[in-house]
Write a protein that binds this DNA or RNA. Sequence first.
DNA 1: CGCACTATATATAATCT
DNA 2: TAGATTATATATAGTGC
Lengths: 203, 203
Amino acid sequence: MATKVKKQSLGRQKIEIKKIENKSSLEVTFTKRRKGLFNKASELCILTGAEAAVIAFSPGKKAFAFGFPSVDTVIDRYISENTEEGRSVNTSASHHRVVQESRKQYAEALAKKEEEKKRVETMKEGGTVGFGRDRFWWDLSIEDMGLEELERYVASMEELKKNLELGLMSWRRQATLHPDSWIWIPASTQRVLIDIYESICMN
Amino acid sequence: MATKVKKQSLGRQKIEIKKIENKSSLEVTFTKRRKGLFNKASELCILTGAEAAVIAFSPGKKAFAFGFPSVDTVIDRYISENTEEGRSVNTSASHHRVVQESRKQYAEALAKKEEEKKRVETMKEGGTVGFGRDRFWWDLSIEDMGLEELERYVASMEELKKNLELGLMSWRRQATLHPDSWIWIPASTQRVLIDIYESICMN
DNA sequence: CGCACTATATATAATCT
DNA sequence: TAGATTATATATAGTGC
C-alpha cells in the first residue's frame, strides 16, 4: 500500500509577471495567452452582450484581432466617441473614463508585477528586443502555407462527403479532430451561398 | 469527531456560455470579466512585449479600454496595416489573418457554447439528423441575435452574394453540401469568404 | 455598486511527443 | 514545432456586507 507514485509533471508553475527573456518560451506564451485572451473576450461578449475588440501585435509584429460584432465596428465606435464630432460633455467624460481605465489597468498590472518582485528595475529594460530573426508560424504568409492548406482542404472535403452520408453526428466527430482549421457557418448563410453558387453556375 | 462542517459557499459554479438574462448579474459578470480580461491583456504585454489593446462597451454602452503602449497607438497601427496605403500582397495577407482570427474565435466560442446542447439533441436523433422537424441550436442562435445585429447580418449576406457573383470561386465544392445544417468550412475557404466579407464591411 | 470570501471551474507552465 | 498531458496557479460564480 501507499505506493509512491512519481509525479509525471510539476504542473503549472508560478511565474513572475515580467518580460520573458527566453525567446522560444516567449513565443509559446504569446500563442497560448493570445488564445486565452481572445477566448475570454468571446465569452464576455456572449455572456453579457457586450461589444468588444482585442487587437494584439505579436513579438514578431504580426497583427491578431478579435472583434464582436467586428473589429471595425468596435473601433469605429470607440473613435467616434472620442473625436470632435460627438464631443459633448458626456462623450468627453466617456473619453476620460476610457483613458483612465487604460492607464489604471496597466498601472495595476505593473504594480502587481513589482509587488511580487519587490523591485523596480524591470521597468527600464532596454527597448530593443531583437525579434525577427527567424520566421514563426504566424509570420507565414497565406501564400506560404497555401500548399499544405490546400492538401488538407482536399482531404477534408473527401472526408466531409463521406461523413455526410453517415450523418451529421459522425461528421462532427471527425471535424472535432482539427477544430482550429474550421469555422462554423449557420445554415441560413449556407443557403445564401448555395444560392449564389447556383447563380454563378447558370451564367 | 468528524464534526460536519457546513460549506460556506458552493464555490464557483459552472455556467453555460450563453447570454445572461438576469440584468443585474449580467452587469456584475461584465465588471468582473472585464477586469479579468484587461488584466490578462496587461500580462500578455508585459510577459511577451506584445502591443495590445482591448476595447469593450458594456451592456450599458459605456466604453472601457486598455492599451499598451496606448489604445491609440495600437489602433493606429492596426488601421494603417489594413488600409490602402500599405495594401501590398503582404499586408493583405496580414489582413486576412487578422480577420480570420476574429471570425474564428467568435465562431469557436459559439460552437463551444452550444456543444453540450447540440450533442444531446443530436444523440436523441440516433445518428439520423432530423432536419426541419425540431428547431436545433443553429436556428436558435440566429434567433438570439438582436434585431439590429440580424439586420446587419442579412445586409452583409446580401453584399456577400453580390460580391461572390463577381467571380469568387474556391467555393463550388462547398455548394454540394447538405444545405440544412451548419457545416464546417476549411480555413482556406474561409479566407476567401472573409476577404469578401471585409471588402463589404469596409465599403 | 464595489469589495470580500469560498470553493470550484479554467487557464496555463512545464514537459513530453 | 504544433499538439497532448499533467498538476498547479488563477479566475470567477455565488453569496453576503
